[in-house]
């Protein structure tokens, strides 16, 4: 646990934890509002957004890609709403029709574009690249206090930390509104809370969290983190405050354990190659949810 850990593992673990928490926080409210699969839809439409941003700007720089992805998420949410209203189609099918179509368009655009010179492919989008985010300039724990070396931290860490902070701040600022409108929308409207705007804001926040996390850890982890930790937390308690705390704890432990198992697990089985950390983090969160389904104190449907 010395210099090597700081160089190779500290940053991926931190990025994993921050991504997981940024996704799990809005996930709590999405689950309670029965919109859990919005996260699934968002993580699929991020691909066309990023490809279009690349086509427009011609570079794989971060700002346009994040904007493109966030824009695609908003377009998807809008289209889903349009299909729901105009066609009288139930939300799940509308979502399924829109996000698969947008994903197909993204794959097609990607195939028709010459992206051989840049790192942009579907597999990277799915699996992320957590293991490569190393901090080679660091020499040990004391590097954390050295400003010159701190400046060489990977950009992904700075970005996801910023987004995580924004998500935490938004959750705290809008806590009362979110809580009231999630459990009783009619009462929220009677109090003058703009419930519809708040619902849209929640989806946008989720999209921003998804896009920032997606950049570092890929879209699988995003889907899993939106749903598994909050769902497991839901089975632990009947108080929203406790549920959110549990979900953060579950997200953190999934990220940490997942990264450790992915990096060191194969060694225990005598295999030299590491496995995908993002996939392992998603799997661990699923195992935690499975345990909560079996033993969570508030798991049963009727009290």
């Amino acid at each position: 646990m010395g210099a090597e850990f700081v160089q190779l593992s500290l940053i991926p673990v931190l990025i994993g934890i921050l991504s997981a928490v940024a996704c799990a926080l809005p996930g709590n409210f999405l689950i309670l509002r029965r919109q859990a699969l919005i996260g699934d839809a968002i993580s699929h439409v991020v691909l066309p957004g990023i490809v279009i941003a690349f086509l427009l700007t011609g570079v794989t720089s971060v700002a346009p890609m994040l904007l493109g992805a966030a824009g695609a998420a908003l377009v998807a949410v809008g289209l889903i709403e349009v299909v729901k209203r105009l066609g009288g189609i139930e939300p799940g099918a509308a979502m399924g029709a829109i996000f698969t179509t947008m994903f197909a368009a993204g794959v097609l655009l990607l195939d028709r574009t010459d992206t051989s010179t840049v790192h942009l492919d579907v597999e990277h989008a799915l699996m992320g690249n957590l293991e490569s985010l190393v901090w080679l300039q660091a020499e040990g724990w004391h590097s954390l206090l050295d400003l010159a070396i701190l400046a060489t931290l990977p950009d992904e860490l700075v970005r996801i930390a910023t987004v995580c902070a924004i998500v935490v701040a938004l959750t705290l600022v809008f806590w009362r509104w979110l809580k009231i409108s999630t459990f009783d929308e009619g009462f929220a409207q009677a109090l003058g809370i703009p419930a519809a705007g708040l619902g849209l804001g929640l989806v946008v926040t989720a999209a921003i969290a998804a896009v920032a996390a997606f950049d570092a850890v890929g879209s699988i982890i995003v889907i899993a983190m939106f749903i598994c930790p909050p769902a497991a937390a839901r089975l632990m308690t009947n108080r929203l405050e406790h549920q959110v705390a549990w979900s953060v704890a579950f997200a953190t432990s999934s990220a940490t354990l997942g990264y450790i198992f992915a990096g060191y697990g194969p060694l225990w089985f005598g295999s030299p190659a590491a496995v995908s950390a993002s996939g392992m983090i998603a799997s661990i969160s699923g195992i935690i949810l499975g345990l909560a389904c079996l033993y969570g104190p508030q798991r049963s449907r009727v009290k």
């Binding site: 699969l37 699988i220 983190m225 996939g279 392992m280 799997s283 949810l289 798991r299 449907r301």
Partner: peptide, 25 residues
């Protein structure tokens, strides 16, 4: 459990796909 069906769908989707990616690597 008290989880709704959409939460169950999302959880299974994410977890199984993650496990699949682990096997692929």
């Amino acid at each position: 459990t008290r989880l709704t069906e959409d939460a169950a769908i999302g959880a299974i989707l994410g977890t199984f796909f993650g496990a699949g990616i682990v096997f692929l690597t």
